[in-house]
Structures are given as C-alpha cells and as structure tokens.
Amino acid sequence: MSTVSIPDFNQTIPIDSVGVEERVARLNKRSIKTESKLQGLKLALSMIDHTTLEGSDSEGKVIQLCKKARLPYAPMPDLPTVAAVCVYPNMVATAKKALEGTDVNVASVATAFPSGMAQLHIKLDDTRYAVAEGADEIDMVISRGEFLKGNYSFIFDEIAAVKEACGNAHLKVILESGELETYENVRKASDIAMYAGADFIKTSTGKIQPAATQPVTLVMLEAIRDFYRETGIKVGMKPAGGIRKAKEALQYLVLVKETLGADWLNKDLFRFGASSLTNDLLMQIIKQETGIYQSNIYFSND
C-alpha cells in the first residue's frame, strides 16, 4: 500500500445513472443456452455463500445448512459444493465442526450486523470472537449513518481496524447500498472500503430493501476495476440479498465477465449471498441435464 496514494474521498466520482441502467439492461438480453448455461449454473452454485441470518437460527438449522453445503443434491454427487456457509458469530463453531474435512469456508457476519450501531471496541471484539471460533471470512457492515454525514475518515479507520482484527480471515465489507441513496455514494463507499483493505465488497445485508440490484453491482464492479488498474490488487465482489432465480445469477455472471473479465469468474473473487438461490440453481441444473422441469417441493429448504 505504501506506493499507492489514497484518493481524496471528498471528491465525488460522477456516475451516469442512465448509462449504468442501460448497460445492465443491454447485458441482460444476452442469451446463454445449453452447454454454456449448464457451466454457468454450476459456476454460480460454486460461488454461493449459503446463508442463514435469522433471529430464530439454531444449531440444528446450521448443521442442516452445512449438510446441504457439502452435498447440495444427493442424487448428483459430482456437483460443486457451495463456496461458504454464512452465519452469525455464535453459530461459527457449529458450522466449522459440521464442515470439517471439506473446503467449504465458514463466513460470519460481525460488527453488530446488520445495523452496525455499536461502539468500535464492541465491533472489534465481535470480529475477534468470530475469528477465534474459526471463521475463515468476516462480513462486516459499515456505519451508514457516519457515511451519510460525510465522516469518511471514520469509515476508513473503522474498516482498517476491523481488517486488523480479522488477522488471516478474509474481510468482506457490506456497504448496504439500499441505505446509501445514490450510485455516487455506492462508488465512494466502495473506494473507501477497498483502500482501507477490504478483500471483498458486498452490496447488502439482505435486511434492507432494495438489497442487491444489478445497477449497483455494476457500479461496484467498475470501482473494483479502477482500483485494480490503480493498485494491481484484485478485490472480490459479493452481491447479496434478493437474488433468488438462476436466471438472475447468470445475468450477474455476465456483468462480471464484461466488466472485470474471466479472472473474476471464480469463487475467490465473486460470491452470491443467498439462501433460496441454491435450490433454483439445482432445479435448473437438473432441468438442463434431464429436460424435465423440477418442483421445489423435492428440494430441502435449508
């Protein structure tokens, strides 16, 4: 980082919102069929952060979720596993144990998810606790209130401090784009997160509407591209919340390919935060392979 100068975050990078939305609409028209569709669906499956973030989560539910992560669909054992299981910090140990011996990571939300309304030392303790329990990846939320006040250095310092607390764990920074109001703010928050040391930037918690949208994702992907050109560092992207259909997942993959290139088309640099997407992908994969439309009553919920 020493050779990279940190830009002035008070400068706003203008975003052409009409252009962004039109580009997304145009890329959505791309038709992906037969063999490429099947490969795309399998790739998307391997990129999922299989998520449960409910107040009602229990050990049993997390263990069930992990079983599905290891073996998404028993009749087709050759399918890829999902990339990670994403849970609350107090469920990390349970998930870690249930995923022993696989290369499925455990991701944990931390820093007073989903609001982020807590003191810094509490957020850092939350993070350290999750890492000590065995989390491989930490999903943190930024303080949107401070961001909207224009207190950018607060956000920067907070992310840098959490990054330090993460140690070897990967850090994903949740911008919660639904609360940032404008594309310019999304872009700015992305830049702050990346310069502060984020390994991934993530759209949303899934608790606020709108959650992930494709235009917001495109703005963030362009921020990643510019950051890569500036620094040579590849930062990952994770749209999360509201992605339920396999078709949308393929559209996201097209956005990534067209903005960042094929280097980003793997689970180390791109993830989907989702819970119900897994079943739709499985149903579409089986449809591709057998020609028979599937029903979700034959697929487990977790």
Binding site: G291, I292, Y293, Q294, S295, N296, I297, Y298
Partner: peptide, 8 residues
C-alpha cells in the same frame, strides 16, 4: 410432454 413431465 412438458406438462405431463413437469414435477410441479
């Protein structure tokens, strides 16, 4: 064929 094979 598609209606009668549809699992739903």
């Amino acid at each position: 064929s598609h209606l009668s094979s549809h699992m739903d």
